[in-house]
Design a protein around this nucleic acid. Sequence first.
DNA 1: TTCAATCATATTGTGCGCAATATGATTGCG
DNA 2: CGCAATCATATTGCGCACAATATGATTGAA
Lengths: 144, 144
Amino acid sequence: MDRPLELDDQLCFPLYAAARAVTRAYSQLLADAGLTYPQYLVLLALWSSESPLSVGELGERLHLDSGTLTPLLKRLETAGHVTRRRDPADERRVLIALTGSGEALRGVAAEIPAEVGAMVGIDVGQAEVLKGLLTTIIDRLESR
Amino acid sequence: MDRPLELDDQLCFPLYAAARAVTRAYSQLLADAGLTYPQYLVLLALWSSESPLSVGELGERLHLDSGTLTPLLKRLETAGHVTRRRDPADERRVLIALTGSGEALRGVAAEIPAEVGAMVGIDVGQAEVLKGLLTTIIDRLESR
DNA sequence: TTCAATCATATTGTGCGCAATATGATTGCG
DNA sequence: CGCAATCATATTGCGCACAATATGATTGAA
């Protein structure tokens, strides 16, 4: 029963399709706030941080590089949700800080995870199992 | 212990990051063949099919729309791996067929899933659990 | 101190994803 | 039959992802 080249028999395709489906669900809920899903992830990271984060620190947390983050952060800046300034202590670094507007979005976003969770409707235990397996995959592939 | 707005406490972020990590792993192995990961998925669908598939049928299987597929298929056509022709029986449809070159790639691609599987290193049982949960998520989100 | 190596971010180029819209073919109702 | 609604694909526009490269700041060894 070995059909590794069937679309539905591989792990990679459900993973790819599920990630897009979840991103799409988030995107629709985030559209009201004028945010994209990756922009929401950047804000999540900033909301969790006591102080501004550099582009590199955001990249580490989100596993994204400057080619993705630089234009995304400029759009968030244009929208008024963050500020970008060189770190005076190290002019190579660019520090990203939340504005009042960026802070305020936290309230709007607070309901969204539960809404998507309700759509998906898997229980907490299964979600933990899933998260554990996904984290294992990330760690294994990223440590090479 | 309710911190829904922490990056690592949500399911969506590991899902997003794992899908990108797996896509990246595949992309590196596919680069030799000059293929991208979505192009590989299209070929997977065609390799599994007895006869040519229309753009719409490919879109159903891959959960992608014509905005993504049309340019991708034109690139596969330019590379010589598929042909695109109107269905004589219904001129609205465009049929995608494998060429000899496209068929030949099946041999090159055959090793790749096992290689990525070895990198990820989760056992078959866990992979089945994961696939089941991901499929549930896809079904729930797509049926709305 | 100097300057080559390293580091952090930015830029460029290509290929997705996807919403919105356009175009042309087909169908079916009156 | 005639034509409006529907259908399949294509086009447009925007925002990621990411590899490759460029730019400018910092560091450290001679």
